[in-house]
Design a protein around this nucleic acid. Structure first.
Lengths: 111, 111
DNA sequence: CGCATATTCAACCAAATGGTTGACGATACC
DNA sequence: GGTATCGTCAACCATTTGGTTGAATATGCG
């Protein structure tokens, strides 16, 4: 569906959201912890997480009063498949990917 | 660079623009011809093409009074590489891709 | 119970987005 | 030169987006 791709690509078009996805690549996280490295309100991060969830890029599960965020890599497949058609890419270029990851990590976070 | 991905993903987040890319996959086209199947003004399509150009997804070359639009698949590589890191996708699923292409073609275009 | 923590909701705001129309510049054609 | 075609520009408009703050809800803790 065209609409799915709309929402997925739109979700990926924001650097904060991509940084969140990169963080979740390492481990599941609570909303508060996701928000921690960013210089913006918790409410703003909460909105970003909603957008990522509606795009299917993450899922959120509430355990107790903590809502855990989990990467859902499947949702990216539709977008990935769509893109693959536009060129003969290196199937996976992990090296370049890692450089992107670094660039994506929230600034000012020393670790 | 984070900024590049911003612009690329934002460009891909619009169904009209994805449809344009799909059209250009078949052949280079003049702006007027790109606009033809869409039910929106030429100016609107011109704006979309500018956005695609600034994202590096297409290039435009003026020959005479006709401006030719050409797909530039390389620009998608950065985005593709970024995405590949988020799962072990089928490297290329051409079958699913073709179904997407059909879904992406402008509606109401009988031909 | 009473307080702290985790998260969202609601109202608001500035800026960006996607569209329109009409005028305009540049090129081609006769 | 005059006219038609190709494409963009400028001004405008409605909607969406990404952020804020303050109040509200829900859970856990002593």
């Amino acid at each position: 569906m065209s609409d799915d791709l709309d929402i997925i690509f739109a979700a990926l078009a924001d650097p904060t959201r991509r940084a969140i996805l990169a963080m979740l690549l390492e481990d599941d996280m609570a909303v508060t912890d996701v928000a921690d490295p960013f210089e913006m309100s918790l409410a703003a991060i909460s909105k970003h997480l909603t957008i990522l969830t509606r795009a299917g890029l993450i899922s959120q599960e509430k355990r107790g009063r903590v809502k855990w965020c989990k990467l859902e890599p499947d949702a990216m497949r539709a977008a990935s498949v769509w893109m693959q058609g536009f060129g003969q890419f290196d199937p996976v270029n992990l090296d370049a990917f890692e450089r992107f990851l670094e660039a994506e990590l929230p600034k000012g976070d020393g670790a």
